[in-house]
Nucleic acid binder design. Structure first.
Lengths: 197, 197, 197, 197
DNA sequence: TATGAATGAGTCTTCATTCAT
DNA sequence: GATGAATGAAGACTCATTCAT
């Protein structure tokens, strides 16, 4: 009955989580009232725990960054327990991209960096964390390439509400990790139009 | 009488461009006054030409979409005039990613899509336009893969204020387009700790 | 019917005057709403014309300072047209102190200087203006003394809602300006208690 | 257990003193938090000891009034122990006016009276106390005149952060108490522009 | 047509006050 | 008895929008 009240840390976290959630859903007009309502706390609480709405926003972004770190760590474990084959990696990518929430989080983090340069640090941490992770499987340069691709796949997933299909991811990882594609892909520009020449 | 005045269409466009510019720079609080100031027009103009701020915002996004289309068309021409080799394509990517403004525009368009689903159409148009473009060079599936990578590279460029380096882009395009990498990249997990040599 | 509206300067002045009036009456809690109500204008007007409540307060103090200057100038004219005798000066003091509004204004100006050192300039201008004025009648040192006394008399009048009585003012001016009192005033401390010793 | 705690009366007094101090320094926005911080006590204490902020404010003004009374009493003693000569009185005035804190206190008390008529009682008590005091040295009417002057000198000191110079005070007290100035001070208006000499 | 004065709705923020602990 | 978490009322301030000119 009273467990909920008088739990400063918990309440604070609830508010932050609510703000983060709204941000990840692209809410265009986030106000104290909206956050309070979403968190199920009275208006005053949002201002009691945070000196300004901007502070709350910062806390939420930090919160998201931690979530990203946690995801990264979790993925690292899975990776270590796996065989590290392109197929497995592709499957993990697919799983990752299937989590709409997570995918949006990344987009939010990225676009927030635009307006607030100090946030770029967080986004870059995510990115370099991913590169580090992939470096366990391949050389650093390829890991970087793969990470860039994953970012693009995130955008794509955020935009289409579904991840790229698994076979494509498999092809890509195989191609990048082994340097061997299953078939030649070059096509001359002319080829596009004419059939019979 | 001076030529600058009495050009309704021009003034309207100035306002739209100002709004678009502010949006691309991540301005957090865009108001009529801010846009008017940025465009160098009186406050009243912004409300005279647009029924609401939201209308103006929509016009700006349309404006950006057109810009994207124009970029796409321009790139298409360049591509047609080129030899279509992976190196050339990589160079074009590099050029494209070097334009910070453009790269930001894409990120803005993407994150705006999050908040306003109707915009996802615009973003998807950009993406499929890119795929169509690349399809002139390779099969549709590879083109899709490349487009995803370009999106990722855009995010990366927006975040780091500089594009990925050209060699990496070259490796990637070559790898995807020819299915041939210059060297094997797979590294077995075991390899990290050599057993018997 | 429309003369009142669309008169920016006039409306601005109304608001300033309302604020000044409230300040002079020692209103403890001056808010936008209170000023708006007192000036008979809508709430928005008070924020439209002044970037902040503090700006409005500053404008009001400037307004009061101008009023003080005007009073000073007016008094100067009266003084020039007078015979400059102590009696006349005393009478003018009495008139001055009889204006409750004016007397309060001075107190407000003084106490505002406490909280906002930049206002001390205004208060000092009033004071030195008074000294200059009195310097036309007597030496500067005596003028200073008289000005200090007038300040004290202002405080007294503000506190008691009525000026010091005329005879006292006459005695004082005569005493200071001529250096001649009508009777000796020294009384030995012992004299207070014992009658017969 | 350390002696500092468990001293309700002492803590109460600390809070009151902190409030009084803030008031005397012209703090524009006095809140519970501000007082608590200034007094070095927890926020709760300020509401625990005083039913409302207004109560606390009243207590502080009472506190200041007592301080004024104490000053008055102390001055009375000094006066009784002195020779009561104008020079001595002037020196005492000078001492009094040299205490910036005290001088501000009076101004605060006066201006507070404006907003809260019930405080005028306190201010008048100070003033009549001063008159009583000076009445031990001279007739009541002159004492009143001197008290008014001292009030003016307080304003002047508060505004300039330093008291009037001693010689001026000496001249004034001598002039008022003996009715004898060291030199004639009248200057005829004509004198400004000499006619025929 | 074009502009800026005008206004009130809505937001952030502060804070007196209450009250669980 | 003391304290700080908690909250809603209230104020400063912003600004979209309206409208007189």
């Amino acid at each position: 009955m009273s467990g909920t009240r008088r739990d400063p840390a918990g309440r604070r976290r609830e508010i932050v989580a609510a703000m983060a959630d709204l941000m990840c859903h692209g809410e265009p007009k986030i106000t104290h009232r909206r956050v309070a309502q979403h968190a199920g706390v009275p208006l005053g609480s949002t201002t009691y725990y945070f000196a300004s709405l901007d502070d709350l926003r910062s806390a939420a972004l930090e919160f998201l960054a931690e979530k990203v770190d946690a995801d990264l760590a979790e993925t690292a474990e899975l990776l270590d327990a796996s065989d590290g084959s392109p197929e497995t990696v592709a499957a993990m990518f697919h799983d990752y991209l299937s989590d709409a929430e997570r995918v949006r989080t990344e987009l939010v983090l990225y676009s927030a960096s635009l307006a607030r340069p100090e946030l770029a640090v967080v986004s870059r941490r995510w990115f370099s964390g991913l590169v580090d992770l992939l470096s366990r499987l391949t050389d650093r340069r390829t890991a970087l390439t793969m990470a860039v691709f994953v970012d693009g796949a995130c955008m794509h997933a955020a935009l289409n509400d579904e991840p790229l299909d698994l076979p494509l991811l498999q092809d890509l990882t195989r191609s990048l990790m082994t340097g061997t594609a299953d078939r030649p892909r070059l096509r001359a520009p002319e080829e596009t139009e004419p059939r019979t020449s």
